[in-house]
Each structure stands twice: as structure tokens, then as C-alpha cells.
């Protein structure tokens, strides 16, 4: 019995230097790219489910409890699930005022900041649209923020983190050029979405979102709004519905039936679709999805 207890305790202290909990898979991948072998990342949310609605399973409390640092997306994307986990875990290293806590949204310019914050406008994000990682240009900013963060909590491996960052930057910049070229002829295309997940992606490549299937953020589709959307599609002739992977495509299919508009599934994170295994393949897919 004693041996068994010892076994349960051992792995956590021996595995890696830094045990970093992150809210979403993209943050995990980015952190791993910079941290390399000196860190271990623990991803809390699943990549194929709605990032707004993560189940606060008690097993996640243990993951936060055992973390040396926590990196979150921020912008209130985690508001419905991360606060109780942090509270239950009672880990001083993952307290929101700890120097081992990083809120990425503070380092990015947020789009769609509502002028008027009122829930009659749906379940809005008062700080702006939090899906900023879907602009591939932001990924470099975030990588730099994570590099500085890792150095600030583990100065011993400063050179390694800087070297890893430079490698990542070089790789990413060459891909940015490729993706830009791929998306060149898509500039000005009108699109419909379910929820405005792709605001940053659209901005990066000049796509214009003209409507969403949900009438207001977080409010499920209504028939009245759907009919208005069908009229809008007939008038404006957008190229396609860019649909997330976690909402039902039922309403989109209905709209497609009535208007002939294409539905394109757009993954929002690593693991959202089977082939999306890393950050590059996520943007490779996104930039190649509209044909």
C-alpha cells in the first residue's frame, strides 16, 4: 500500500521542470513550441467542443492544483468554467494575480468591443471578441508573450526559450506568406457564420462577415431570424456559411436547402477536426477551406 502511495506521488515531481496548465489546445501547442523539453503542458479544454462551454470536471481541479503556471485565453472566454476550477484547486501559482498566471487577451488588440454592454444583446463578451488566435499574425504576438512569460518564471532556460522562439518565428513567417498568397483572391468575399468566431481570420484575409445564424451571441437560432438571413443571402449572395464544428449544422442545412449556399466546416482549434493536429495544420486547413 505504501509503495502504491509513493508511486502516485512520484511522477508529478520527476517528469518535467515546469508543469503548465493551459485552457485551450492552441495555447498548449504554442507553449510547447517555445518551452520544448523544459515544460510539460496540460490542456484543460477539448479542441472539438465549444470553448465557451467547457465541463468543469473535478479531474481538471487536480490538473490546476498540480500546475506550476497557468496560461489562459482571456477576454471572458473562460468565464463560465475556469473560475470555479481555480477556486477549488486553491493553488497560489494559478491565482489570477500570481506572476505565474498569464492572460493572453491583455496582449492583443481585441476586435468587436461592444459599445453597449447589456444582455438584451445576447451573451456578449464585454471586452471584445476573444477568438483572436484565429488571426495567424496574432500567433506570433502570442508566441512572443509566452516566450517572455516562460523566461520570467524560469530564467535559467532563457536561451533555450529564445532559440525556440526564433525557430518558431522563422517557420511561422514563411507559412504566413504562403497562406497570404492562398487567400489573395478571397479578399472581399462575403461570408455567413454561426457565431462570429472567425472575426480575426476574416480581418486578416479581408473576408466580410454579413450575418450569423444565431440571432444574438449565445442565443440559439430562431425561425424569424433564419428567414431574415435567407432573404439577406438571396440579396447579398455571400460565398458560403463558415460553420463551427460544435454547433448543430441543422439550421445551416435548412438555409443551404433554401438558397443553395455552401456550408464549410471551419475548425477553431487543434483537435476540432481529425486532421488538425497542430497550429500549422489548423491554418493550412482554414486557408484552404474556401474554394
Amino acid at each position: 500500500m505504501y509503495k502504491l502511495i509513493l508511486l502516485l506521488f512520484l511522477p508529478l515531481t520527476l517528469l518535467a521542470h515546469l508543469n503548465i496548465a493551459v485552457s485551450y489546445p492552441y495555447i498548449g501547442a504554442l507553449t510547447k513550441s517555445i518551452g520544448g523539453e523544459h515544460i510539460r503542458t496540460v490542456v484543460l479544454a477539448k479542441g472539438n467542443w465549444d470553448p465557451h462551454f467547457v465541463v468543469p470536471r473535478p479531474s481538471l481541479i487536480s490538473k490546476v492544483r498540480n500546475a506550476d503556471a497557468l496560461i489562459m485565453n482571456g477576454g471572458q472566454l473562460e468565464i463560465g468554467w475556469l473560475p470555479p476550477l481555480i477556486n477549488r484547486a486553491a493553488n497560489p501559482k494559478t491565482a489570477s494575480d500570481a506572476k505565474t498566471f498569464l492572460n493572453l487577451s491583455w496582449h492583443v488588440e481585441l476586435l468587436d468591443k461592444p459599445a453597449d454592454v447589456d444582455r438584451s444583446g445576447g451573451d456578449i463578451h464585454p471586452d471584445g471578441n476573444p477568438h483572436f488566435h484565429l488571426d495567424p499574425n496574432n500567433i506570433l504576438i502570442l508566441a512572443d508573450v509566452i516566450k517572455k512569460f516562460l523566461i520570467s518564471i524560469d530564467g535559467e532556460h532563457k536561451e533555450v526559450y529564445e532559440k525556440n522562439y526564433l525557430e518558431f518565428e522563422g517557420m511561422w513567417k514563411s507559412k504566413l506568406g504562403m497562406w497570404k498568397a492562398k487567400m489573395q483572391d478571397k479578399k472581399g468575399l462575403k461570408v455567413i457564420q454561426f457565431h462570429n468566431n472567425l472575426s480575426y481570420f476574416n480581418q486578416a484575409y479581408g473576408l466580410v462577415n454579413i450575418g450569423t445564424i444565431e440571432p444574438l451571441p449565445g442565443i440559439p437560432p430562431s425561425s424569424k431570424h433564419t428567414f431574415e438571413l435567407i432573404r439577406l443571402i438571396n440579396d447579398e449572395k455571400p460565398c458560403c456559411i463558415l460553420h463551427d464544428v460544435y454547433h448543430s449544422t441543422k439550421t445551416a442545412e435548412y438555409i443551404s436547402d433554401k438558397t443553395g449556399i455552401k456550408i464549410i466546416l471551419m475548425p477553431h482549434d487543434i483537435g476540432a477536426l481529425e486532421d488538425i493536429e497542430d497550429l500549422s495544420s489548423l491554418f493550412e486547413y482554414l486557408t484552404g477551406a474556401i474554394r
Binding site: 511522477p11 473535478p58 481541479i61 487536480s62 498540480n66
Partner: peptide, 12 residues
């Protein structure tokens, strides 16, 4: 007073 064990299994 609550204590969460430092194990991967949630134990409180």
C-alpha cells in the same frame, strides 16, 4: 479545511 491530493486522480 479542504486538501486536494497532489495526484492526477482527483482526491479531496
Amino acid at each position: 479545511l479542504q486538501w486536494t491530493a497532489p495526484t492526477s486522480l482527483y482526491l479531496m
